[in-house]
């Protein structure tokens, strides 16, 4: 049992760490604001969530487990909400996502640097 929880815990931790790194790479390399924000929200929600789950497997007492669980709920509530609010604010202020044009290629006339905050 304890072997199993250790493996599960480390699997979640490593996955969380990987998502953190991939999210950061996405944040740096994606073309426009919306895709970059997507990368940031993945780091925010999924990566943090996986790390918290990994820690929950290792919790020594139930009270620690409960606290970690509450943090997880908080992160799951706030992360996506923040992402949603950001995207909505960006749309409202006139920023359009890059979409494939008629030729199927991504139109590059939009200046990608305008999305950065």
């Amino acid at each position: 049992m304890s072997m199993l929880t250790t493996y599960l815990s480390w699997a979640s931790l490593v996955l969380g760490g990987f998502l953190c790194v991939s999210g950061s790479v996405g944040l740096l390399r994606f073309p426009d604001f919306f895709t970059r924000m997507h990368a940031a929200s993945v780091t925010d929600t999924l990566a943090t969530g996986m790390i918290l789950v990994g820690l929950m497997f290792q919790a020594p007492t139930w009270i620690v487990f409960g606290k970690l669980f509450m943090i997880l709920v908080f992160v799951l509530l706030t992360g996506p909400t923040a992402g949603h609010a950001l995207a909505k604010a960006a749309l409202h202020s006139g920023l359009k996502p890059l979409l494939p044009g008629k030729s199927g290629k991504i139109e590059t006339d939009a200046n990608p640097s305008t999305g950065g905050v």
Partner: peptide
């Protein structure tokens, strides 16, 4: 207009 934000 931010319904989600307000509910959360």
């Amino acid at each position: 207009e931010h319904v989600v934000l307000r509910i959360v």
